[in-house]
Nucleic acid binder design. Structure first.
Lengths: 139, 139
DNA sequence: CTTTACGTTGACGTTAACGTAAACTTTGAA
DNA sequence: TTCAAAGTTTACGTTAACGTCAACGTAAAG
């Protein structure tokens, strides 16, 4: 019941079946098989969601794989947990740096927007006095 | 004076000369020439900075080109300004969406970090009583 | 005057992330 | 039963963003 065909995933996420199979080829998904056809679980569903979000953020599939691996830890021993913790913090810091870039770009865009609005205002002021002069300008 | 050789740019930004020439091939940069060699202005410098920031955010070079174009507006007429304004807002909204994705991923990573710390704590608690039992466990 | 460093222009190679086409099977509905 | 829809594998094609290599120019330093 909680299982989907490949077509369901394409509709849900707006990607092609080829894309989904590609993710399987490189080991990002591993759905079960009913006979020959793929059957996706809610877990696969979630993984795909993570992958696509990674893409929207400009991550490579390899980078997304790294991140996803950190979520099913197979709860290791002490040194493994510490390595995992270190990598989690690395990724977090990388994302925080990304967010600083993003915010900088946002501020610039908003600055440009303000400049643009000012220019439109400027045009409006230039046009308004002309309203009382329009007929004169026709002479 | 306020001009750089290609080597300066590679050192400043950590990219290869090939990369910088590539950006010129596709029209993202257009440095002047002293004879045959390229001479970069502070404006080129800034453009390159924008391009590379775009890359860090996962933008394609084409997307960066769109954004950069919005910054040197050639202060157009009324309908041009309005189109520009609309595109600025589109880009802004796209970036805001990106930031929501990014924040979601950050929250998940921090959740995983917390879980990881909890697991380490768990191990510590399991190990501490064993300290008084260690010799017994050697029997 | 030759070496060293930096510059140039082709032009072909490479990697990631799929697209696309061919040839085939399976399955539920008319 | 036949047809249409959805599935499969295999394999070659494509695009972006450079890497890499060859062959060459120029200019200051030893």
């Amino acid at each position: 019941m909680g299982s989907f065909g490949i077509r369901d995933l394409t509709r849900e996420f707006g990607v092609t079946a080829r894309t989904i199979r590609h993710y399987e080829e490189i080991g990002l998904l591993s759905p079960e098989r009913r006979g020959q056809t793929r059957v996706y679980s809610p877990a696969d569903f979630t993984r795909l969601k993570l992958i696509l979000r990674g893409k929207r953020l400009g991550l490579s599939l390899e980078e997304s794989r790294q991140i996803i691996q950190m979520y099913d830890p197979a709860a290791g021993n002490r040194p493994q947990l510490e390595r995992l913790l270190a990598r989690l913090r690395e990724q977090r810091d990388a994302l925080l740096a990304r967010r600083r870039d993003l915010d900088a770009m946002l501020r610039e865009l908003e600055g440009a927007e303000a400049g643009c609005l000012a220019a439109l205002e400027q045009q409006a002021r230039a046009a308004r006095p002309a309203a009382s002069t329009r007929k004169r300008s026709l002479r």
